[in-house]
């Protein structure tokens, strides 16, 4: 994995920890369900999308975005911040 991708992924993880309710460093894993468990609400999604766009320096195709694309950190990394 490149250093750039690692840094970007860390930023996303930190963002989730900052905004997610009831999640600690220890309880947030790469497979913790973010939307389904309501750790991230739908009103936080626009900011998460902006963060992902800024990290990958590329717009996200919103028309084809599915809730499953933001299921957990592992899915987010694979979908938006590939190695």
């Amino acid at each position: 994995m490149t250093t750039l991708a690692t840094t970007a992924r860390e930023e996303v993880r930190n963002w989730v920890l900052l905004h997610a309710k009831d999640l600690s460093e220890a309880s947030l894993t790469d497979t913790t369900p973010l939307l389904e468990a309501r750790h991230i609400t739908s009103l936080l999604v626009p900011d998460l999308l902006l963060l992902l766009e800024s990290l990958r320096q590329e717009p996200i195709d919103l028309a084809n975005l599915k809730a499953g694309d933001l299921r957990d950190l592992r899915t987010i990394y694979a979908r938006f911040l590939p190695e």
Binding site: L35, R38, T41, S42, L43, V45, P46, L49, L50, L62, A63, L65, A67
Partner: peptide
């Protein structure tokens, strides 16, 4: 311009 409020959950 598309809407970034893509999901209405919760």
């Amino acid at each position: 311009y598309p809407d970034r409020k893509v999901f209405a959950l919760g």
